[in-house]
Structure formats: C-alpha cells, structure tokens
Design a binder for these strands. Structure first.
Lengths: 338, 338
DNA sequence: CTGAAAGCGCTAACAA
DNA sequence: TTGTTAGCGCTTTCAG
C-alpha cells in the first residue's frame, strides 16, 4: 500500500506539501506541484479515504437506506437521490433494509460507524414509532414514511389524500364493495387506510372489516390476500392496493381465478410501474412523483449538512391519479344485484 | 463524539482493555469487563469504524457496483448478494453506476478509498475491454459481464446458449423474420447476438442487418428501436429482446401500433419480471437464475477474501427457457405469404 | 491480566 | 512557500 509518505519521499518534499497538492490548495510552487504530481503518477498513489475521514472528521459519502430494493418505488427514488448527490460531489452508498427492523438498525449503526456526511432513510414502522430511540447523530432526511418527531427533515406524499382520491374514483365509477390491501410494514399503510375510509364514508358506505388486509409489501402476500378476498362469500367489486408489489400480487390472483378486469373485478393501485402500463386494460394508479421525492430529499440533506441548526422541514408532495381501463365505469345492471 | 478514551476513563482502565472488551477478546477479568460495559452504556459509546478500519487495515463492508439499479435483474441479484454477505457478518454498500463508465470509475475509486474488504461488480463494456487498466487491488468478483482477463473470479450465464435457445424456439414455432434488440452497454449483448445468429444459420436463415439493433438498455430505447422495426418495409414476424427493459419498450411500441401478440408479431425476451408474467399473453423469456448468481458471487468473494492466492474461477450458470403465449406457434397461412 | 506506547494515513496548525 | 509536528480513534505488540 503506497501512502502519502512514499509520495513525499520520491518527490523530495514533506507530506504536508503532498497533502496540499492533493486537496488542490493554493500556496504550493508550480515546480514542487509538478514534482509531486509526477511522483503520484509514478507510484500510482491512491489517497486513503479512511485516513482522511478519520483526520478530517467528515466524509464525502452519504448513506441511503431503503426499505426494499426490489420495490420500483424505491429504486426510482434512489436514482434521483443519486443524480442529485453525485452532482454535488458526494458518493452514495445504498443499503437495503429489506423491511427488516434488525437489518435496519445494523445499517444505521454502519452509517454512524462509517461517519457518513448524511443519511437519507425510509424507516420501517417499528422504527418510526420510536424514532428518538435510534439516536441518529448524522444529518438525516426521512423519506416516504412519516415519523412523529418534528425535529427531522421529511419528504412525504399526502397519503391520505391520494388514497382518498383513488377510492373516490372507484366509487364514482359505480363500485361499492371495495377491498383494500395495505402495507403492514410502514406508516403509509395506516394513512392510506384513512383516505380509503373517508371516501367510503363520504358516500355513505361503511368499510367492512373483512375487506381490509394489512400485508407485508410483497407480491406473494398480495396474491394470497386477494385469493381470500375473491373467495369470500360476497366478493368485492373492486380492490385497492397501496403499493405496486401488492398490486401485482392482486392481479396475479385475479388471473389465476380466471376473472376479468374490470368486468368481474376492478383494480386500482399505487405507483407507476411497467406492469401497470403494459397489462390490458392498464391499471389505474396513483403515480407518486418519485424523481421529485428523491431530488427534494437530496437537496434537503445538502442544506442540512451545510447548516445543522436550521429548522426542520416537512415537504409534502401530491400523488397524481392516472386513470386507465382497470377501473372503467361499472356496467349498469350486471349479473349481480347492481 | 465519545471515544474509547472516554470509556476508559470512566471505567478506570486503559484504552487497551476497552478495546479488548469491544472485540470480545479473552483475557479480561470479569470485574473489569463489567465496569467497561457499564461505562459503554452510560456514555452511549459507539465504536468508530473509520478508526478501526484505518488501524486494522481491513473493513467489514463489501461494495457492490451494479450497472443499473432500475433493472430488476440487478436488484434481484443484489438481494441474494446481500442475504449471503449479511449472514457472513458483512455490511453491503451498493453503488449504481447507471451504465455510465465515468460514474463507475468514481465508485471504483470510492471503494478503494474506503478500503472495503471486497467488491462485486458488473462492468460496462468500456471497462471490460480494458479491465487491467482499472488496477483493482481489492478481492473482486465480476458479475454478469465477462472480462477477458482470466485472473479474476466471475459469475456469468451462458449468454450465447440462452439466446440460441430462445431464437430457436421462435424458429421452431414458425417465425422466420426475427428482429433482435441487444444491449449496447455490455458484453452480454454481443454474446447473445452470437446465439441468435447461430440459431438462424442452423435453420438456413441469414440475419438481416436492418433487423439488428444495439441499444442502451432502457425502456425508451427499446420502444424507439421497435418503432423502427415495425415501420420497416418488411416488418419482422417476431422480436427478441435481450433484457427486460428493452423488452418492455418493445411491447410498449407494439401496443402503440395497435398490433396483437403473437398474431401480428411474436415477442421473446430475457429476464423474469412482473410485467412478463402479468401481460396477456405472457411473454416467453429466458429466466436467469438471479438468486443463484448473486449467492454464488457472494460465496466466491468470501472465499477470495479468505484466500487471495487461490486460482480464479469462472462459474457459468444456465438460463431457463420459460415458454408463454407471446411466442405461440404461428398460424399456418396467415394474411402474409406464410 | 493489564497498561504504556507506537502507529495506521492523513490534515492542519504553527514555525521557519 | 515549505516543513515539523501533533493528533483523529483505534488496535496491538511488548512489558510488567
């Protein structure tokens, strides 16, 4: 391992001079600078960031802990975070907590231990409930999932409103018995339930307990819950799923049962994904502004790093209702009782 | 920032003793151990991994540089890598090179600079061509994309064979004029082209130049290339796409033109994805063993870290042909000339 | 079993 | 403009 000392020796200067050249500081004569640069090349020297971080007590890497790297929502957001932070000269390290609170704590510790300059993070529900206990000492921006603490920057979407609009859309198109699949791992599931409930109540409908499922956000869990829904004595006329993995699972189950969308059962979900665009009919969704979310989070973090004392902000973005065939108006007087 | 020194002071011992307790080493009396543990708790001490890494000259983090975090193939592989390495006590940091050689080099440098214990990495084509020039000094396993150097561990699939089987399947089902969309960013595109070519030749067909497209692996590029293909004077009877993003783009274009699959045009692609399963008819694909790939890569890396001198291995896995409706046998004597 | 001390590679005062 | 030097927080000989 070649160090700054070796470079200094070869160039016939002190390590301080090498360090100055490396960090592009002024105050080094052109001659010495050239010598040093030559030595760096000759030795193929690579700076040791670990030592630099230890000494400088700050790094140029930022951590991004996402709940599930297989969920397109998070990968889309991640891209935006990365673009923005890369442009600002930071290196981004992703970690996948896999909706596992234990893994999440481990990665949180790893981020502290690595002394990252900042952290962007979407906590599981367990952690949001006791956020202060995590004792996060790094500049942090919370993503997607609200924590009760007011003392931290957050970027969220208005989940209740989004679910409300999605549900109302179904009701207005003639659907009455509406099942709902909610993510069990996050706070967003609860919030989206409220929106669903409010829409029903506004139209004088009451949410039936057996139509409401809280599931881990995975395709298989979406499938199995939908199977139950489809087999219930009074099958729902429509299903709302609050993330794309549950949505895909629901559609899988619907296909397996040989039902048609929307004639036999309507479907509406969250998140723009390839499958929602490509299936026929397309699936009505709430499109979350993923790029905007990621970009905003990165920008907030940059500001927070620069000024740790600034008051915390909570940015709330709106989802966009994208109407497709899966929720087309219900035909009047179908086989059922209408 | 509370350090080992503070703990030592409070516990009334030396820093060496604290260090011993921290690393769970034997040779500390129960009494002192208890004192130290108490002090750690009282001060809420968190070890500084940066300092530890600097001193020990090795870390417990592993880097994973993927080409595109939005490509489900890579996220699926990543999950497997993470599972395996997490079980072995490592922390995984992902980086997204975004098919951008410059970003890739930056992250490679970052990994060196952070002194990660190991690296798993899928290089862009530019880097594979000049792999030695990257001067990677960390235990490394190459993923998905072959490099000519024999001196590095690799986990690949037999791309030529996979593309051959996929193409042959189409030919056997009666398709003759077959267009192909290949990824331009990687070596896999070239290899898959060979398989495509071999299948055609075996059946006495010759690949027409205007049916072959090398595209960046993105949905939009798949769409635009397919548009061209569909507008060509002699429209192909089938399209092969060699990754899921290009495949999704192709299907998007087919839909936009109002064509039916497979009656108007057949489709076969690579990679199992939600959309390929959910569209109707389902899309015939080569399923890559993503979990196996990731797990194998992680295992190879673990062995490489343990024994840097061991001879390099190249593990080649097989893709699996999954036949669905999108490539159903061609109806005899259709509108065209048959 | 325990502590003193050296040093990992680097940066930033402070001197010269 | 350049060099000397003192650590950043930790581990690990080497003595005791």
């Amino acid at each position: 391992m070649v160090s700054i000392k070796d470079v200094a020796e070869l160039a016939g200067v002190s390590t301080a001079t090498v360090s100055r050249v490396l960090s592009g500081k002024a105050g080094v004569s052109a001659a010495l600078r050239a010598q040093v640069e030559e030595a760096i090349k000759a030795l193929d020297y690579r700076p040791n960031l670990v030592a630099r971080t230890l000494r400088a007590q700050q790094s140029v890497t930022v951590g991004l802990i996402v709940s599930d790297i297989c969920n397109p929502f998070f990968t889309d957001v991640s891209r935006a975070v990365e673009d923005t932070l890369y442009a600002a000269g930071y290196t981004v390290f992703f970690c996948n907590a896999d909706e596992n609170p234990e893994k999440e704590r481990l990665y949180l510790e790893a981020m502290h231990a690595q002394k990252v300059a900042g952290l962007i993070y979407s906590p599981t529900r367990q952690q949001t409930e006791n956020f202060e206990a995590l004792e996060i000492l790094i500049p942090t921006v919370i993503l997607d999932r609200a924590v009760p603490s007011a003392a931290v920057d957050m970027v969220l979407i208005d989940n209740e409103d989004a679910a409300y609009r999605l549900t109302r859309h179904l009701i207005e198109n003639g659907y009455r018995r509406i099942g709902v699949l909610l993510g069990a791992a996050s706070t967003t599931g609860r919030e989206r339930y409220k929106g669903y409930e409010r829409a029903l109540q506004e139209y004088g409908l009451s949410p039936a307990q057996q139509l409401v499922f809280y599931q881990p956000p995975r395709v298989e869990d979406g499938r199995s819950a939908t199977m139950q829904l489809l087999e219930s004595p009074v099958r729902p006329e429509a299903i709302v799923t609050t993330n794309s993995l549950l949505g895909a699972g629901a559609l899988l189950a619907i296909r397996e049962r040989g039902l048609r969308v929307p004639e036999d059962i309507a479907l509406a979900s969250f998140d723009e994904t390839l499958w929602a665009r490509l299936v026929e009919p397309g699936v009505t969704i709430i499109a979350q502004p993923t790029y905007e979310i990621g970009k905003t989070a990165a920008e907030l973090l940059l500001q927070r790093i620069q000024d740790p004392e600034r008051p915390a902000r909570k940015v709330i973005l709106q989802g966009q209702l994208v109407i497709r065939g899966s929720s087309a108006p219900r035909a009047a007087g179908p086989p059922g009782k209408g």
